[in-house]
């Protein structure tokens, strides 16, 4: 598929924003600035961006506990995201959600989800809204290899087929669910085939290759917009990091992660491809990277300076008050 230069630039920038954001929050989290738990999206950038590049603000996505990348790829404001991770009042969820619940409804981002397998049924609902209104919008459910074993995901897949909903299931197969390998936990190594058995088109692609994800999800989105029903894309993108920031990863062989970062880096891949195609040169990329780094610096500065929530916020948005 031939893509316009502006789209490629946009894709690169989104991927680089995710990369920088995630690298930065590992530092901020480790120094104690960010509370709670952090699951890093490093190494999976092409999966989120290759998918969300096809979507508008009024298309929907449902995400996972590893949700920052999806949020950025869908166009959420970096400052408000960072402030949310810091538990600040100016955060996307006013400091009430944090990393595992980050959401931006104005961008069609229906939330990270700390319940594994929580998103796919919700995404069916967004797809149902689109189908009912007949507006050609689509809804994407991100799930992990581990999450793909939840009954909720099987139910959602079957129902999407039965109702011919404009839903796309993106199974991000990063090889692990916590410390358990997909090769153990999934009865078949072919998660796309399992989805296909529900009666929808399903393919597996190299999830570190923006172009591969882009093409596969593009087809699925086009089909869904045209009333052709749901699809599944399995994106294979090995996890660059531990399950959470601080995971010692005793279950992985020494050197495995280093090798992945060296040989399977989605950022390096898209850069190389675009340079080879003569569309960008190294200096241009370096300048873009500096711009992105400055955006992330600004986001961190904004988050640090933002006020913490008012104690009265505790009781806001519960509909009902008791004495």
């Amino acid at each position: 598929m031939q893509l316009p230069r502006s789209t490629l630039l946009d894709a690169y920038l989104r991927m680089q924003r995710i990369r920088n954001f995630e690298e930065r929050i590992v530092i901020e989290f480790s120094s104690g600035e960010i509370p709670g738990f952090i699951h890093s999206y490093l190494g999976q950038e092409a999966s989120a961006v290759g998918t969300c590049i096809h979507l508008d603000d009024d298309d929907y996505i449902g995400s996972t506990h590893r949700g920052h990348g999806h949020c950025i790829a869908k166009g959420a404001d970096l400052k408000a995201m960072m402030a949310e991770l810091y538990g600040k009042r100016d955060g996307l969820c006013r400091g009430k959600g944090g990393s595992m619940h980050i959401a931006d409804l104005s961008k069609g981002m229906l939330g990270a989800n700390a319940i594994v397998g929580g998103s796919p049924p919700l995404v069916l609902g967004a797809a149902l809204t689109a189908k009912t209104r007949g507006n050609g919008k689509v809804a994407v459910a991100f799930t992990g290899d581990g999450g793909s074993n939840q009954g909720t995901v099987f139910e959602a897949m079957n129902m999407a087929v039965v109702l011919q909903l404009p839903a796309i299931f993106v199974i991000e197969n990063n090889g692990f669910g916590e410390g358990t390998a997909a090769s153990y936990a999934c009865g078949t190594p072919d998660l796309a085939a399992r989805a296909a058995a529900f009666g929808m088109p399903a393919v597996a692609v190299d999830g570190t290759d923006f172009f591969a994800v882009h093409d596969a999800v593009g087809e699925a989105v086009e089909r869904a917009r045209g009333g052709g029903g749901p699809s599944t894309v399995e994106t294979r993108c090995p996890r660059f990091t531990g399950h959470f920031v601080g995971d010692p990863q005793h279950y992985r062989a020494r050197g495995e992660v280093e090798a992945l970062r060296r040989d399977g880096d989605p950022l390096a891949l898209i850069r190389r491809r675009l340079i080879e195609a003569g569309l960008f040169d190294v200096e241009q990329f370096d300048a873009l990277d500096r711009d992105v780094a400055a955006e992330i610096d600004d986001a961190v500065a904004f988050a640090r300076a933002a006020p913490i929530p008012d104690e009265a916020d505790l009781m806001a948005d519960v509909y009902i008050a008791y004495r």
Partner: peptide, 12 residues
């Protein structure tokens, strides 16, 4: 889930 952990992992 992960009551042992490491099933199928590369470190053995």
């Amino acid at each position: 889930e992960d009551v042992a952990g490491g099933e199928g992992g590369s470190s053995g």
